[in-house]
Design a binder for these strands. Structure first.
Length: 880
RNA sequence: GGGAGGUUAGCUCAGCUGGGAGAGCAUCUGCCUUACAAGCAGAGGGCCGCAGGUUCGAGCCCUGCACUUCCCACCA
């Protein structure tokens, strides 16, 4: 065994072994209870980042724990084709060579995309393996594979049959760069400095009369089909049922009254462009207005824009402003802070325009999805955090535009007739002729929103629409672990489709993880240059260090601030585990592996077993709530500050003793093995490596070992308290020695009523750990002969320590030390006494609280007496 | 505009149905004590964001405010 912890030497080998042995496998049919979780499929757009490392770590911890607990555990792997995102990555690559996707053509372009997707896929899988994920690789799927396509088509057709899918010409968000329609979610609002233009529209039949409208998009006036005012606005009464004339296109449009118009804003007069604005579109619908489209899908003004036709939107705007100025129709320009819609993928300004697209009706499914969470069929963790957000979104949901004018994705299973308006929904080309009798069917060239297929993961992954055993066993999944940023994109839609197509929710629990940020709390991004690369980190510090660090942050906060130094810090813990293991193994010569733990009698051995079981119970409780950060903290503390700092130190003389040697060796090996098991889900590599060296290992891999089940019988709180007193005693002596700068060994007289026997048993260790020459244990009832005067004293509950040190004692120092202690005791005591005197407290507080406070009070009172006594003796000492 | 978080030691965060503030890291001091200097031992450090209120008792509950992060939203 190496003297130092060097993870690079064993991590990759261990992973290979796990894979070869098939430890990640799950069974379609099994006697064991199922535990299913689907990995949120990473996009094949690039390499993994810290966010992926976090989600993988969290899921792997849960999955490994469940597997060791005896569940038929499946962690389902896959990657997502990520339609628009991946297509864009490839388009960018091509753009560097000056090639567009249209230059290549659909088929050639898709070949390129597949190449890219495959390349990224391989990188991603390798990265995940490096991190140690225990995904059931044999089940791996791709969201664009053939079987997935079947499932997607099935759902599409079925939605259509149910009347939940329709084709409609509506105003939609259009990205002119991507050349596709987008769903609401794919549009982000960004603040921008803009201008508000005040433009005169002259009234029909009156050369002098006019209205002024305020707009941020003057170029859309070409598509205006009305001007709206508030019905209550007296200023515009004269124009009721009159027309105004749109400049340039000289169109007469009506002045209409609509409550939507805010009298206070701008001029109180609103230009209505139903063809290019969502509000206007609705107002237009209310008033039966014509919709005029002036902007084409390529972002160029069309023939309806008159002399501006053929200009790009931005150029048209500049020119219009110029011409309005020239004609005197531009009243003024104000600076204005506006929010602008942009394509969340490429940042291009969104053009709302009317287009024929496919929509999924959402309200019915949304209601059921809301209900499922309200009823508790699905629970969100952290509890209650995202529920409100989820409800709000579902309650205000709009129909989902699922068609995309992209090439990379699931092709719509829609077939149009080339000679009439007829169409058919079908996964395969319809064999029959169209009703019209003449036409041939051709397939829609559009593809589906990526999230459409993503919404099927929890059941499509297990073979749906076939009724597979896997589906029967693993649906609903037990858990979905993901980022809260895709709660609408993905989680809500999985829930809706799950209920719709499987008749049950897709998963029981949803665990949301935080966003990984840099140490200053800023988002990690390449442009900021603050990215911590998981692979680099693993190479330098090992996967376990990274995993432990990430897990230590996996509480229920929304942000994680990650720093390199922290990962290094937890690397120290890995080394500590390594070193303690070295000690363990080198101490086990002559171990009887058949020893029965129940035969161990030494209080220290019983104590550490008790502590182990207490800790296992704590971990179990935290695991129930997915409080992984608490688990890492508990285990860190237990391993380092109890097992290493105290147990190992106490065990040293015991290991060599004739009487306790055997039981101590066994206990040491046993505790070591059990802690490794508790730690394994978090830090799988080092624990596997060390488990293999533990003579008590009960199988060839810790992955197949059983997770520690807390044994209540083994927990002895009294014993834990007693040992705690011994620890306090040692700490207290160390404290005194440190204060006085005593480096030599000292004598200590310990006076106790009840703890004599235990102190006697542990005297060897106490002498060593506290740095004593001699420990003299006396019975409190017969301690009269102890000379306290002029000696250093320390008082613990039922334990008084006297250090004969007349020659070194510094009266003033000692007075300060004891005085400080007394002060703090007095403070607590006053507080307690005050409480216990308060009739209101005695009357209203819960009895157990009062009882508890009384006990505390009595204990402190005793301490105070003894401290006072000690101080008094110092005084008399000073005098004499 | 609506909604949800956050504010506790220098930093990162825990703090249970309200019982009287904790951890890790960092800092300071002393130690190469034969598992570990990536270590051991000891110590210091807090108007729990501000102001009210409820209560015998508030870091925790209520109200307001400040700062901050994030969602959602059609004010031209």
């Amino acid at each position: 065994m190496d003297l130092k912890y060097t993870p690079s030497e064993f991590e990759s080998g261990i992973y290979k072994k796990w894979e070869e042995k098939g430890y990640f496998r799950s069974e379609d049919k099994s006697e064991k209870p199922p535990f299913a979780i689907v990995l949120p499929p990473p996009n094949v757009t690039g390499a993994l980042h810290m966010g992926h490392a976090l989600t993988c770590t969290i899921q792997d911890i849960i999955v490994r724990t469940k597997r060791m607990q005896g569940f038929n555990t499946v962690w389902f792997p896959g990657t997502d084709h990520a339609g628009i995102a991946t297509q864009m990555v490839v388009e960018r690559e091509l753009a560097k060579k000056g090639v567009s996707r249209h230059d290549l053509g659909r088929e050639k372009f898709l070949e390129k995309v597949w190449e890219t997707a495959d390349r990224h896929h391989d990188i991603i899988i390798d990265q995940m393996k490096t991190l140690g994920v225990s995904l059931d690789w044999e089940r791996e799927r791709f969201s664009l594979d053939e079987k997935f396509n079947e499932a997607v088509n099935r759902v599409f057709c079925s939605l259509h049959d149910k009347g939940l899918l329709y084709r409609g010409k509506k105003l939609i968000s259009w990205c002119t760069r991507c050349g596709t329609a987008l769903s609401d979610l794919e549009v982000s609002q960004e603040p921008e400095d803009g201008k508000l233009y005040y433009i005169k529209y002259s009234a029909e039949g009156s050369a002098s009369d006019h209205v002024v409208v305020a707009t941020t998009r003057p170029e859309t006036l070409l598509g205006d089909t009305a001007v709206a005012v508030n019905p209550a606005d007296k200023r515009f009464r004269r124009l009721k049922e009159k027309n105004v004339i749109i400049p340039f296109v000289e169109r007469k449009v009506p002045v209409i009254a609509d409550d939507y118009v805010d009298m206070e804003f701008g001029t109180g007069c609103l230009k209505i462009t139903p063809g290019h604005d969502f509000n206007d579109y609705e107002i237009g619908n209310r008033h039966g207005l014509e919709t005029v489209t002036v902007i084409n899908k390529d972002g160029v003004m069309n023939e309806n824009a008159g002399i501006f036709g053929g200009l790009k939107v931005s150029d048209a705007r500049t020119l219009i402003i110029e011409k309005l100025k020239d004609s005197g129709a531009l009243e003024k320009i104000e600076d204005y802070q506006l929010t602008i819609s942009k394509c969340s993928r490429c940042g291009t300004v969104i053009e709302p325009l009317t287009s024929r697209q496919w929509f999924v009706k959402m309200d019915g499914m949304a209601a059921k999805a809301t209900e499922a969470v309200k009823k508790g069929d699905i629970e969100f963790y952290p509890r209650g955090w995202w529920e409100q957000t989820y409800y709000n979104w579902l309650e205000n949901i709009r129909d989902w535009c699922v068609s995309r004018q992209l090439w990379w994705g699931h092709r719509l299973p829609v077939w149009y007739c080339d000679s009439c308006d007829g169409y058919k929904i079908s996964s395969v080309k319809p064999s029959a002729k169209c009703k019209c009798g003449k036409g041939e069917y051709f397939q829609d060239s559009d593809v589906m929103d990526t999230w459409f297929s993503a919404a099927l993961w929890p059941f499509a992954a297990f073979g749906w629409p076939e009724k597979t055993d896997a589906l029967k066993t693993f649906y609903p999944n037990q858990l979905m672990e993901t980022g809260f940023d895709i709660i609408f994109f993905w989680v809500a839609r999985m829930i809706m489709f799950g209920i719709e197509f499987m008749g049950d929710v897709p998963f029981r629990h949803v665990l949301y993880h935080a966003m990984v940020r840099d140490e200053k709390g800023q988002k990690m991004s390449k442009t900021r240059g603050n990215v911590i690369d998981p692979l680099e980190t693993i190479k330098e510090k090992g996967a376990d260090s990274l995993r432990f660090t990430l897990a230590s942050h996996a509480g229920h906060a929304r942000d994680i601030k990650l720093s390199e130094s922290e990962i290094t810090g937890y690397g120290n813990f890995m080394n500590k585990i390594w070193q303690a293991s070295r000690f363990t193994f080198m101490s086990l010569d002559g171990l009887d592996t058949g020893f029965d733990l129940k035969d161990a009698v030494h209080c220290i051995n019983k104590w550490i077993v008790s502590r182990l079981n207490s800790v296992a119970a704590e971990v179990e409780a935290k695991f129930q709530q997915y409080q992984l950060s608490d688990i890492t903290e508990i285990l860190y503390r237990f391993f380092w500050h109890e097992f290493c700092d105290w147990y190992i130190e106490f065990s040293k003389p015991m290991l060599a003793s004739e009487e306790y040697g055997q039981e101590t060796k066994y206990t040491l090996a046993y505790i070591h093995r059990e802690i490794l098991k508790l730690l394994h889900p978090v830090i799988p590599f080092i624990t596997e490596e060390l488990y293999g060296l533990n003579p008590l290992k009960d199988n060839e891999s810790i992955m197949t070992a059983s997770y520690p089940v807390p044994d209540k019988e083994a927990v002895d709180k009294t014993l834990e308290g007693d040992i705690s007193l011994v620890r306090d005693m040692i700490s207290s002596i160390r404290n005194i020695k440190s204060m006085y700068g005593i480096t030599s060994k000292v004598d200590v007289i310990a006076i106790s009523e009840k703890h004599g026997a235990m102190l006697e048993m542990l005297s060897g260790q106490i002498v060593k750990l506290a740095g004593l020459k001699k420990l003299d244990i006396r019975d409190a009832s017969k301690s009269g002969a102890v000379e306290r005067k002029g000696n250093i004293r320390s008082v613990l509950p039922d334990l008084e320590l006297v250090i004969p040190a007349r020659d070194i004692i510094d009266i003033e120092k000692e007075k300060t030390r004891l005085g400080k202690k007394l002060e703090s005791v007095n403070r607590d005591l006053d507080m307690l006494a005050g409480k216990l005197k308060n009739p209101n407290f005695l009357e209203k507080a819960r009895p157990e609280i009062i009882e508890n406070d009384r006990n505390k009070h009595d204990e402190l009172a005793k301490l105070r007496r003894e401290l006072g006594d000690a101080l008094e003796m110092l005084e008399s000492c000073a005098v004499s």
